[in-house]
Design a protein around this nucleic acid. Structure first.
Lengths: 140, 140
DNA sequence: AGACATTCGTTAATACATTAATAAAATGAC
DNA sequence: GTCATTTTATTAATGTATTAACGAATGTCT
Protein backbone atom coordinates (compact mmCIF):
# COMPACT_ATOMS: atom_id res chain seq x y z
CA UNK A 1 0.00 0.00 0.00
CA UNK A 2 0.89 3.60 -0.53
CA UNK A 3 3.16 5.10 2.12
CA UNK A 4 1.40 7.17 4.75
CA UNK A 5 2.90 10.48 3.70
CA UNK A 6 2.06 9.99 0.03
CA UNK A 7 -1.66 10.27 0.63
CA UNK A 8 -3.20 13.06 -1.41
CA UNK A 9 -5.77 14.12 1.22
CA UNK A 10 -2.98 14.48 3.79
CA UNK A 11 -0.89 16.51 1.40
CA UNK A 12 -3.82 18.79 0.68
CA UNK A 13 -4.32 19.22 4.42
CA UNK A 14 -0.69 20.09 5.05
CA UNK A 15 -0.54 22.45 2.09
CA UNK A 16 -3.61 24.26 3.36
CA UNK A 17 -2.04 24.64 6.77
CA UNK A 18 1.10 26.07 5.19
CA UNK A 19 -0.97 28.59 3.24
CA UNK A 20 -3.12 29.58 6.20
CA UNK A 21 0.00 30.24 8.26
CA UNK A 22 0.34 33.42 6.21
CA UNK A 23 -3.11 34.73 7.07
CA UNK A 24 -4.01 33.37 10.50
CA UNK A 25 -1.96 35.88 12.52
CA UNK A 26 -3.74 38.83 10.91
CA UNK A 27 -7.19 37.37 11.47
CA UNK A 28 -6.37 36.69 15.10
CA UNK A 29 -5.72 40.37 15.64
CA UNK A 30 -9.37 41.24 15.06
CA UNK A 31 -10.16 38.48 16.21
CA UNK A 32 -11.93 36.49 13.51
CA UNK A 33 -11.93 32.79 12.77
CA UNK A 34 -11.08 31.44 9.37
CA UNK A 35 -14.70 30.54 8.66
CA UNK A 36 -15.99 33.91 9.81
CA UNK A 37 -13.63 35.62 7.39
CA UNK A 38 -14.76 33.33 4.55
CA UNK A 39 -18.35 34.35 5.19
CA UNK A 40 -17.53 38.04 5.40
CA UNK A 41 -15.42 37.83 2.26
CA UNK A 42 -18.26 36.22 0.32
CA UNK A 43 -20.77 38.80 1.54
CA UNK A 44 -18.42 41.61 0.58
CA UNK A 45 -18.42 40.40 -2.99
CA UNK A 46 -22.10 39.46 -3.39
CA UNK A 47 -23.75 42.11 -1.19
CA UNK A 48 -26.71 40.06 0.00
CA UNK A 49 -26.97 36.28 0.00
CA UNK A 50 -29.35 33.58 1.12
CA UNK A 51 -28.10 31.24 3.80
CA UNK A 52 -28.02 28.38 1.35
CA UNK A 53 -26.02 30.27 -1.26
CA UNK A 54 -23.57 31.34 1.42
CA UNK A 55 -23.11 27.76 2.57
CA UNK A 56 -22.49 26.64 -1.00
CA UNK A 57 -19.98 29.39 -1.72
CA UNK A 58 -18.06 29.03 1.53
CA UNK A 59 -18.12 25.22 1.58
CA UNK A 60 -19.77 25.26 4.98
CA UNK A 61 -22.68 22.95 5.79
CA UNK A 62 -25.95 24.56 6.84
CA UNK A 63 -25.85 23.46 10.47
CA UNK A 64 -22.36 24.92 10.90
CA UNK A 65 -23.37 28.10 9.13
CA UNK A 66 -26.29 28.64 11.49
CA UNK A 67 -23.86 28.94 14.40
CA UNK A 68 -21.36 31.07 12.49
CA UNK A 69 -24.10 33.46 11.43
CA UNK A 70 -25.39 33.75 14.99
CA UNK A 71 -21.96 34.60 16.36
CA UNK A 72 -21.23 37.09 13.58
CA UNK A 73 -24.56 38.77 14.26
CA UNK A 74 -23.80 39.02 17.97
CA UNK A 75 -20.46 40.62 17.13
CA UNK A 76 -22.27 43.15 14.98
CA UNK A 77 -20.73 42.14 11.67
CA UNK A 78 -23.84 40.98 9.81
CA UNK A 79 -27.56 41.63 9.64
CA UNK A 80 -30.31 39.25 8.58
CA UNK A 81 -33.80 39.67 7.19
CA UNK A 82 -36.43 37.31 5.91
CA UNK A 83 -37.04 37.11 2.20
CA UNK A 84 -40.37 38.80 1.34
CA UNK A 85 -41.18 36.28 -1.39
CA UNK A 86 -40.20 33.11 0.43
CA UNK A 87 -40.59 33.16 4.21
CA UNK A 88 -38.22 30.22 4.60
CA UNK A 89 -35.22 32.05 3.19
CA UNK A 90 -32.91 34.24 5.27
CA UNK A 91 -31.09 37.08 3.53
CA UNK A 92 -27.75 38.03 5.00
CA UNK A 93 -25.56 41.11 4.47
CA UNK A 94 -22.66 42.99 6.08
CA UNK A 95 -23.09 45.83 8.54
CA UNK A 96 -21.17 49.09 8.15
CA UNK A 97 -18.89 47.96 10.94
CA UNK A 98 -17.99 44.87 8.92
CA UNK A 99 -17.44 46.87 5.73
CA UNK A 100 -15.07 49.22 7.52
CA UNK A 101 -13.18 46.33 9.08
CA UNK A 102 -13.00 44.58 5.71
CA UNK A 103 -11.61 47.68 4.01
CA UNK A 104 -8.82 47.84 6.57
CA UNK A 105 -8.00 44.14 6.55
CA UNK A 106 -8.17 43.19 2.89
CA UNK A 107 -5.08 45.10 1.71
CA UNK A 108 -3.02 43.59 4.51
CA UNK A 109 -4.20 40.09 3.67
CA UNK A 110 -3.67 40.70 -0.02
CA UNK A 111 -0.08 41.73 0.73
CA UNK A 112 0.43 38.45 2.56
CA UNK A 113 -1.00 36.60 -0.41
CA UNK A 114 1.48 38.34 -2.64
CA UNK A 115 4.30 37.44 -0.28
CA UNK A 116 3.24 33.81 -0.32
CA UNK A 117 3.08 33.75 -4.11
CA UNK A 118 6.50 35.37 -4.35
CA UNK A 119 8.12 32.83 -2.06
CA UNK A 120 6.43 29.97 -3.86
CA UNK A 121 6.68 30.96 -7.52
CA UNK A 122 4.12 32.78 -9.63
CA UNK A 123 4.36 30.22 -12.37
CA UNK A 124 3.93 27.20 -10.12
CA UNK A 125 1.10 28.90 -8.26
CA UNK A 126 -0.82 29.27 -11.49
CA UNK A 127 -0.23 25.63 -12.35
CA UNK A 128 -1.26 24.55 -8.86
CA UNK A 129 -4.51 26.50 -9.01
CA UNK A 130 -5.40 24.95 -12.34
CA UNK A 131 -4.70 21.44 -11.10
CA UNK A 132 -6.78 22.03 -7.97
CA UNK A 133 -9.67 23.23 -10.08
CA UNK A 134 -9.37 20.16 -12.22
CA UNK A 135 -9.35 17.91 -9.16
CA UNK A 136 -12.54 19.54 -7.88
CA UNK A 137 -14.35 18.33 -10.98
CA UNK A 138 -13.32 14.71 -10.55
CA UNK A 139 -16.20 12.83 -8.98
CA UNK A 140 -16.54 9.20 -7.87
CA UNK B 1 -8.97 42.39 -4.31
CA UNK B 2 -8.80 38.85 -5.51
CA UNK B 3 -12.14 37.27 -6.36
CA UNK B 4 -13.63 35.06 -3.67
CA UNK B 5 -13.31 31.85 -5.61
CA UNK B 6 -9.68 32.49 -6.52
CA UNK B 7 -8.50 32.09 -2.95
CA UNK B 8 -5.91 29.34 -2.64
CA UNK B 9 -7.03 28.12 0.81
CA UNK B 10 -10.58 27.73 -0.49
CA UNK B 11 -9.38 25.83 -3.54
CA UNK B 12 -7.34 23.51 -1.35
CA UNK B 13 -10.40 22.93 0.80
CA UNK B 14 -12.62 22.13 -2.17
CA UNK B 15 -10.01 19.89 -3.75
CA UNK B 16 -9.68 17.96 -0.51
CA UNK B 17 -13.44 17.50 -0.35
CA UNK B 18 -13.44 16.20 -3.92
CA UNK B 19 -10.70 13.70 -3.08
CA UNK B 20 -12.32 12.55 0.16
CA UNK B 21 -15.56 11.90 -1.69
CA UNK B 22 -13.84 8.79 -3.07
CA UNK B 23 -12.98 7.38 0.34
CA UNK B 24 -15.64 8.59 2.76
CA UNK B 25 -18.33 6.06 1.77
CA UNK B 26 -16.02 3.13 2.49
CA UNK B 27 -14.97 4.49 5.87
CA UNK B 28 -18.58 5.05 6.83
CA UNK B 29 -19.30 1.38 6.37
CA UNK B 30 -17.07 0.44 9.32
CA UNK B 31 -17.77 3.14 10.65
CA UNK B 32 -14.61 5.17 11.06
CA UNK B 33 -14.04 8.90 10.84
CA UNK B 34 -11.44 10.41 8.58
CA UNK B 35 -9.15 11.22 11.52
CA UNK B 36 -9.52 7.79 13.06
CA UNK B 37 -8.43 6.23 9.80
CA UNK B 38 -5.42 8.57 9.58
CA UNK B 39 -4.31 7.44 13.03
CA UNK B 40 -4.80 3.76 12.24
CA UNK B 41 -2.98 4.15 8.94
CA UNK B 42 0.01 5.74 10.64
CA UNK B 43 0.13 3.06 13.33
CA UNK B 44 -0.05 0.34 10.69
CA UNK B 45 3.08 1.71 9.09
CA UNK B 46 5.11 2.54 12.21
CA UNK B 47 4.00 -0.25 14.58
CA UNK B 48 4.26 1.70 17.84
CA UNK B 49 4.32 5.47 18.23
CA UNK B 50 4.37 8.05 20.97
CA UNK B 51 1.35 10.30 21.19
CA UNK B 52 3.45 13.27 20.11
CA UNK B 53 4.88 11.54 17.06
CA UNK B 54 1.40 10.43 16.08
CA UNK B 55 0.10 13.99 16.34
CA UNK B 56 2.95 15.25 14.19
CA UNK B 57 2.48 12.59 11.50
CA UNK B 58 -1.30 12.90 11.31
CA UNK B 59 -1.40 16.70 11.54
CA UNK B 60 -3.65 16.49 14.56
CA UNK B 61 -3.08 18.69 17.61
CA UNK B 62 -2.48 16.95 20.94
CA UNK B 63 -5.78 17.95 22.55
CA UNK B 64 -7.73 16.56 19.58
CA UNK B 65 -5.63 13.42 19.55
CA UNK B 66 -6.39 12.72 23.20
CA UNK B 67 -10.08 12.38 22.36
CA UNK B 68 -9.49 10.40 19.17
CA UNK B 69 -7.22 7.97 21.04
CA UNK B 70 -9.78 7.52 23.80
CA UNK B 71 -12.56 6.71 21.34
CA UNK B 72 -10.37 4.34 19.32
CA UNK B 73 -9.42 2.54 22.52
CA UNK B 74 -13.05 2.18 23.55
CA UNK B 75 -13.81 0.71 20.13
CA UNK B 76 -11.01 -1.80 20.67
CA UNK B 77 -8.80 -0.62 17.79
CA UNK B 78 -5.74 0.52 19.75
CA UNK B 79 -3.87 -0.21 22.96
CA UNK B 80 -1.69 2.13 25.01
CA UNK B 81 1.15 1.65 27.46
CA UNK B 82 3.45 3.99 29.31
CA UNK B 83 7.03 4.27 28.16
CA UNK B 84 9.31 2.52 30.68
CA UNK B 85 12.08 5.10 30.28
CA UNK B 86 9.94 8.24 30.38
CA UNK B 87 6.75 8.02 32.41
CA UNK B 88 5.29 11.03 30.63
CA UNK B 89 5.23 9.35 27.22
CA UNK B 90 2.36 7.16 26.02
CA UNK B 91 3.10 4.43 23.47
CA UNK B 92 0.27 3.52 21.14
CA UNK B 93 -0.21 0.54 18.84
CA UNK B 94 -2.93 -1.32 16.93
CA UNK B 95 -4.87 -4.27 18.32
CA UNK B 96 -5.34 -7.47 16.31
CA UNK B 97 -8.89 -6.37 15.61
CA UNK B 98 -7.57 -3.19 13.99
CA UNK B 99 -4.95 -5.07 11.98
CA UNK B 100 -7.60 -7.42 10.61
CA UNK B 101 -9.90 -4.54 9.76
CA UNK B 102 -7.05 -2.66 8.10
CA UNK B 103 -6.11 -5.66 5.99
CA UNK B 104 -9.67 -5.85 4.68
CA UNK B 105 -10.09 -2.14 4.08
CA UNK B 106 -6.79 -1.05 2.59
CA UNK B 107 -7.13 -2.84 -0.77
CA UNK B 108 -10.58 -1.37 -1.25
CA UNK B 109 -9.35 2.12 -0.45
CA UNK B 110 -6.32 1.65 -2.64
CA UNK B 111 -8.61 0.69 -5.51
CA UNK B 112 -10.54 3.92 -5.01
CA UNK B 113 -7.29 5.84 -5.01
CA UNK B 114 -6.42 4.23 -8.31
CA UNK B 115 -9.82 5.13 -9.69
CA UNK B 116 -9.37 8.73 -8.62
CA UNK B 117 -5.94 8.91 -10.22
CA UNK B 118 -7.25 7.39 -13.43
CA UNK B 119 -10.09 9.88 -13.73
CA UNK B 120 -7.78 12.77 -12.94
CA UNK B 121 -4.63 11.92 -14.89
CA UNK B 122 -1.54 10.12 -13.64
CA UNK B 123 0.74 12.78 -15.02
CA UNK B 124 -1.15 15.70 -13.49
CA UNK B 125 -1.45 13.85 -10.19
CA UNK B 126 2.30 13.58 -9.97
CA UNK B 127 2.73 17.26 -10.76
CA UNK B 128 0.07 18.19 -8.20
CA UNK B 129 1.74 16.18 -5.46
CA UNK B 130 5.07 17.83 -6.12
CA UNK B 131 3.56 21.30 -6.05
CA UNK B 132 1.75 20.54 -2.80
CA UNK B 133 4.99 19.37 -1.24
CA UNK B 134 6.67 22.52 -2.37
CA UNK B 135 3.91 24.66 -0.91
CA UNK B 136 4.28 22.90 2.45
CA UNK B 137 7.82 24.19 2.68
CA UNK B 138 6.90 27.83 2.08
CA UNK B 139 6.78 29.57 5.43
CA UNK B 140 5.90 33.14 6.37
C1' DA C 1 20.21 17.90 46.99
C1' DG C 2 17.05 21.64 45.85
C1' DA C 3 15.12 25.41 43.04
C1' DC C 4 14.24 26.06 38.22
C1' DA C 5 12.60 25.68 33.73
C1' DT C 6 11.03 22.20 30.00
C1' DT C 7 8.46 18.70 28.12
C1' DC C 8 4.39 15.57 27.66
C1' DG C 9 -0.16 14.53 28.06
C1' DT C 10 -4.45 16.08 29.55
C1' DT C 11 -8.48 19.17 30.76
C1' DA C 12 -11.33 23.30 29.90
C1' DA C 13 -13.71 26.41 26.95
C1' DT C 14 -15.25 27.84 22.68
C1' DA C 15 -15.90 27.19 17.63
C1' DC C 16 -16.77 24.24 13.83
C1' DA C 17 -17.91 19.51 11.13
C1' DT C 18 -21.04 15.92 10.24
C1' DT C 19 -25.24 13.17 10.23
C1' DA C 20 -29.92 12.64 11.47
C1' DA C 21 -34.17 14.53 12.74
C1' DT C 22 -37.46 18.36 12.98
C1' DA C 23 -40.59 22.46 12.00
C1' DA C 24 -42.28 25.68 8.80
C1' DA C 25 -43.03 27.38 4.28
C1' DA C 26 -43.58 26.56 -0.56
C1' DT C 27 -44.54 23.48 -4.53
C1' DG C 28 -46.91 20.18 -7.29
C1' DA C 29 -50.27 16.42 -8.34
C1' DC C 30 -54.81 15.34 -7.98
C1' DG D 1 -58.50 23.82 -2.97
C1' DT D 2 -56.50 19.69 -0.41
C1' DC D 3 -52.77 16.76 0.62
C1' DA D 4 -48.32 14.60 -0.05
C1' DT D 5 -43.90 16.06 -1.34
C1' DT D 6 -40.05 18.97 -1.48
C1' DT D 7 -37.23 22.78 0.14
C1' DT D 8 -35.07 25.78 3.80
C1' DA D 9 -33.36 26.60 8.13
C1' DT D 10 -32.75 24.99 12.53
C1' DT D 11 -31.88 21.74 16.53
C1' DA D 12 -29.70 17.61 18.54
C1' DA D 13 -25.87 14.57 19.21
C1' DT D 14 -21.34 13.26 18.55
C1' DG D 15 -16.59 14.13 16.94
C1' DT D 16 -12.81 17.29 15.94
C1' DA D 17 -9.99 22.09 15.92
C1' DT D 18 -7.89 25.59 18.50
C1' DT D 19 -6.03 28.22 22.38
C1' DA D 20 -5.01 28.50 27.18
C1' DA D 21 -3.97 26.50 31.38
C1' DC D 22 -2.66 22.68 34.33
C1' DG D 23 -0.14 18.67 36.65
C1' DA D 24 3.18 15.32 36.58
C1' DA D 25 7.74 13.71 34.99
C1' DT D 26 12.22 14.89 33.40
C1' DG D 27 16.25 17.71 32.78
C1' DT D 28 19.34 21.54 34.26
C1' DC D 29 21.88 24.49 37.06
C1' DT D 30 23.96 25.75 41.11
Amino acid sequence: MRKFNDSLPLRLLKAREAAMAFFRPLLQEIPLTEQQWRVIRALNEFEELESKQLAELCCILSPSLTGIINRLEQQGYIKRRKSPEDQRRILISLTDKAKTMFAQMSPRLEARYQEMTDRFSHEDMKTLEELLNKLCNVKP
